[in-house]
Design a protein around this nucleic acid. Structure first.
Length: 569
DNA sequence: GCCGTTTTCGGCCCGACTGTTTTCAGTCG
């Protein structure tokens, strides 16, 4: 079966090829837009039974529906294969080099016979590019730098790394006298799970001062470009772009700089339809500026309610905002407890009392200690005997607390024979039972789906932890039918975890949105193995927001009593 | 390629920075 991800990749590659071949730019955009739509789908494309069903998807018309249908029925796409065969295999990778675009790739291939990164690097080092029309010594240098940069930073940066780096930059520029307002923007502000580069926006009457401070920040290893209003640097192996605007334009610039690109295109098209013009300096009716200082006003002036950054992916948020039907998104302050924390009884590093202290400092009302079970090899998992001792200890601790409750929980392993790692008679005694897969991750899709379904159907299992098992950038999700799991969770009242660890974020944003549609509740949990990791909660909340979740969709926004009533009896 | 609160045909976001071909194309976001 062809996966959605693969179809999206094919469409992106078609767009790349058409760009190199100097094809119609709107056609190219159509392929990219369709790729994003497919990426954001939770349903497998193979579930679509006709072209007409496919055509209901945004950005999919006759031609693309036909092509998708060809892929899901035959596993191939002739149009794509023909296009791909028209270019040498390594050529498209050149597009990944910063500063090298489709026009350059076409010229390098046509005039120098360059077909891949190795041959480009050789030609640049031998100064064979200088004589080409429109190229000089600086271009050669830029290409070599670009190649080095690409090799160093092939993959996108995990959210947490970029997020904390962005915070540091904002903190150090905040003290500048010349900086009136400052914010990070881009995909970090949208809290996307991986980040391409860091975007910083400053409002100032003295841009030059801000630029200078930015270029000399601690950790800056290279200045890539620097102009009046825009500077790009490499800081700690990631690119950071600074843009400086007048305070009068801060809101519109923040809107523009936050993206996503597709969201911006759709927003600007909407502005045009209303006889307005939107750019980073404001919203304009003819020459009159009608918004710009505050970001809210940009949206309001277009007849929209304010769209939170986490929703700005260019899917259907603009339409929802126009109808006044945006969700009232969950916030970090709605969270009342953390339901998945490991203690030093298994592989955690903190004692239960330390965890309690941390939870109280976060103003939580409850916490669930949920350590591993023995099947998870190296974690020192709890067997029945030790679990009973831990329950006794938790009871003692609760005896010392009056306005806080420690729940006895477990993260019971779902073994590859589909059985849980502890007997039902002990699971019954716990306040909360979390089940998760930890071993034998390469089962076939049907097997893995059945394995997790058996846990969902167990009346003692309250929550399924990290349901797809992915580690961002390191490990793909299990091959599992996530829609089937969510559907089953809906009919059994099982809750799905949204693991807030920034390297997991599992379930992911689009799954959360599907879960909401199916009435499945989500528990946002940190899976902390150390009290400091309990602070990851906001990454989980942000992902929930990206999944359009509201307070009521999330289990651990409830009071202790409500929580206990919601769990399986 | 898609799509419709002017359109089923004729539109399709917008500006900063760089290097080079001295007036603008290419790239990026």
């Amino acid at each position: 079966m062809v996966e959605n991800r693969e179809v999206a990749r094919i469409f992106d590659e078609i767009a790349d090829i058409l760009e190199v071949l100097d094809g119609d730019k709107f056609k190219i955009r159509a392929y990219r837009r369709a790729a994003r739509t497919i990426e954001n789908l939770t349903a497998d494309l193979s579930r679509f039974k006709s072209k007409n069903e496919l055509k209901k998807l945004p950005g999919i018309g006759d031609a693309l529906a036909k092509k998708i249908y060809e892929i899901i029925t035959t596993g191939r796409l002739k149009y794509y294969e023909d296009l791909r065969n028209s270019l040498p295999a390594g050529l498209l990778e050149l597009l990944s080099i910063p500063g090298v675009g489709p026009k350059t790739v076409a010229k390098l291939f046509r005039e120098c016979g360059i077909t891949d990164i190795a041959s480009l690097e050789r030609a640049a080092k031998n100064h064979e590019l200088q004589h080409l029309f429109g190229m000089g010594a600086k271009t050669e240098e830029k290409i070599l730098k670009g190649i080095a940069l690409y090799r160093r930073q092939k993959e996108r940066t995990p959210l947490d790394v970029a997020y904390f780096q962005a915070k540091r930059i904002v903190e150090s520029l905040k003290n500048l006298e010349s900086a009136v307002e400052i914010s990070y923007a881009g995909s970090i502000r949208r809290m996307k799970e991986t980040i391409g580069d860091i975007d910083i926006l400053v409002a100032s009457h003295r841009p030059r001062d801000v630029m200078d401070a930015f270029k000399t920040l601690e950790g800056v290893s290279e200045v890539i470009a620097s102009g009046e209003r825009k500077t790009s640097v490499i800081i700690g192996d990631i690119q950071a772009d600074l843009r400086v605007v007048d305070p009068d334009s801060f809101g519109s610039a923040l809107q523009y700089f936050t993206g996503s690109q597709l969201h911006n295109i759709k927003l600007r098209e909407l502005a045009l339809r209303k006889g307005l013009k939107l750019n980073e300096y404001g919203v304009f009716r003819q020459d009159e500026k009608i918004a710009g200082r505050r970001e809210e006003d940009v949206y309001h002036s277009l007849g929209l309610s304010f769209i939170p950054p986490e929703l700005r992916e260019g899917q259907d948020e603009i339409e929802a905002a126009a109808r006044g039907e945006l969700p009232d998104l969950i916030e970090l302050s709605d969270i009342r407890g953390d339901l998945h924390v490991h203690s030093d009884w298994s592989d955690g590093r903190s004692s239960i009392r330390e965890i309690v202290d941390k939870a109280r400092s976060l103003e939580y009302e409850y916490i669930a200690i949920s350590d591993h079970t023995p099947a998870v090899g190296i974690t020192g998992g709890l067997d029945e005997k030790r679990l009973i001792r831990q329950m006794d200890e938790i009871e003692r601790i609760n005896g010392d607390l009056d306005d806080f409750r420690v729940l006895s929980g477990i993260e019971v392993d779902i073994r590859s024979d589909n059985r849980l790692d502890l007997p039902d008679k002990i699971l019954e005694k716990l306040d909360i039972v979390i089940a998760a897969v930890h071993t034998n991750l390469t089962q076939k899709k049907e097997e893995m789906t059945a394995r997790i379904l058996s846990a969902i159907e167990n009346p003692n299992v309250d929550i399924i932890a990290h349901p797809t098992g992915r580690i961002i950038g390191k490990r793909d999700p299990y091959d599992v039918d996530i829609e089937a799991l969510i559907d089953a969770a809906g009919s059994t009242g099982t809750i799905l975890e949204l693991n807030a660890n920034p390297r997991r974020l599992d379930i992911k944003d689009t799954h959360a949105r599907y879960a909401k549609k199916k009435g499945v509740k989500v528990a946002i949990s940190t899976d902390a193995h150390d009290t400091s990791q309990m602070e990851y909660m906001h990454f989980g909340v942000a992902t929930a927001r990206r999944g359009w979740l509201e307070k009521d969709d999330v289990l651990n926004t409830r009071s202790l009593d409500e929580l206990l009533r919601t769990l399986k009896p």
